[in-house]
Design a binder for these strands. Sequence first.
RNA 1: CGGGAUGUAGCGCAGCUUGGUAGCGCACUUCGCUUGGGACGAAGGGGUCGCACGUUCGAAUCGUGUCAUCCCGACCA
Length: 591
Amino acid sequence: MRMSKLFVQTLREFPSDAEVISHKLLVRAGYIRKLSMGIYNFLPLMWRVLKKVENIVREEMDNAGAQELLMPFVQPKELWEESGRWGAYGGELMRLTDRHGREMCLGPTHEEIITAIARDGLKSYKQLPVNLYQIQSKFRDERRPRFGLLRGREFIMKDAYSFDTTQEGLDKEYKNMWNAYTKIFKRCGLDTKAVQSDSGAIGGSVSHEFMVITDTDAGENDVFYCDCGYAANSNHAISDLPMANIKGEWSTPQIIDTPDTHSIEELCDFLKIEPTVIVKSLVYIVDKNPVIALIRADKNVEETKLLNAVGGNEIRIAVAAEIEDIMVQNGFDAEKGFIGPKGLKEYNGVPVKFVADKTVIDMKNFVIGVNQKDKHGVGYNWECKCNSGGSDSTGLIELPETVADIRLVEAGELCPECGKPLKVTRGIEVGNIFQLGTKYSAPMNAVYTDIDGTTKPYIMGCYGIGISRTAAAAVEAHHDENGIKWPLAIAPYHAIVIPVSTKDELQMKVAEDIYKTLVKHGVEAVIDDRDERAGVKFKDADLIGFPYRITVGKGITEGLVEFKTRETGEILNIKPEDAAEIVVTAITKLK
RNA sequence: CGGGAUGUAGCGCAGCUUGGUAGCGCACUUCGCUUGGGACGAAGGGGUCGCACGUUCGAAUCGUGUCAUCCCGACCA
């Protein structure tokens, strides 16, 4: 490709609406342009990168025994009703109506379709196991798209689905996919960590996410890990707490004035206490139902854990107006900062549910909100057998029926497997593997006939890789102040040849010769034939991120050209005829 | 969904307070000059100032509404 013809427009400045480095660089270097919120055009350079990632994924999936197919992007409501997700999926499912008034949706994932395909085709145990996959655009109407390609609404994804007759078969395929993923990301030049995770809306039990560990702030997920090998996503991580004072100083219960203590910090300052002796009450709304979470005040609630504890689809924190409503409806006059569990019965006719984090059970003589403005209860305890002597209930709080781990783990807490302090890092999720079991096959009546003549639902697994997200994650992991440093395997081109002066006939001739030789040997190369100053060409080459740069300049009078490796910055002066060999050798090593 | 901010040429921005013929840098076109890290000079082309309504003799500028984009999410951050 000749640079003068390549469809790419680099920008002198970063776009103003981009926040993370992969977004900034991909726009500035001319890879992508935004069309709408969370929706991007993939320009020719980007498309080359995406095809490279796709092909690596395709090769390894095929090697692992999976078969590629392609399912529709637009899907009928009926299948989603069969699985129960038409109602359950929420706002991320982009729904539309066709001219006949039929309701459809844009596919955010394809469990329903693939299960229907399997149901039609896989009738006998003799046909199983099977693993089917596709590489295709997905659409999720994200509440808040951001970070460019890392969290767009439309994105490219590889999704695979396995069908087995036994759990042992699923376990085997799960491991098979795990191994394939490890190879895929390694080939893409990415270091990944497989972490335990919550299975979320897709459902199922066992699941792992493959995370690219990155120093940049684009990592959306905190990954907690330990040298012993334990690693988990924040929505799944568990830990033991280090020793702390969890016994308050007040031995007799009383309600005291705590004016203007709207935050835990203010309350601690006022009472001169540690947050470890406060039980805070947080109001959540789960599918329109009120849920009060009780947790030690120095810790935070992990919303996914809380959601799993109460069951439901969507969880969010209550807004101030809702908290006010709850107070009024239960005969209180308090505001946020003074909320407590006692006396809260219902909200809009729905009983209030209470969930206590398991770490509050051992707390004694604690401080808690009592639904009175500018007041808190101190010296409170849980109402349980050990406290049965109390004649009046003042100072006793009923321990909720649901006691669960709803706590967000923090670095420094203790590894659940070996007891050493956990470490935290940011990760970008580029792939995931789930054991679905019969979550879709059972409700959709997707069954096969087993050897004994009985019909059984398939045991399913699903396995995703974000193709476009993987490319963006590669930029997060491989860049410097001058631009992108693509791993060779997924770079849009392997090398660029730069004649410093297009008016210098010798330079041009040597550059053209090198370029032709590279192309002849299967190297994907660009020659920068533009009549630009050398600085412009170097800046563009660095920004776009060609792994190798061959510069033909003044040195040619001594028979030498410059060979630069983008990743390391290493510069060699070599003979023109040696350039192709170096690049070809590097490319060969990729296979 | 709630809160905040911003919409002026392809990109980045000024002008708005105090209404009076729409500007700057980059990019683009032509010419000259220059050629190892985003040169310089000259001359050009390109915008109904997000959209609608209103106030006014007159609106990018003031008011109302609307759409879009970005940032933030009750305790804690």
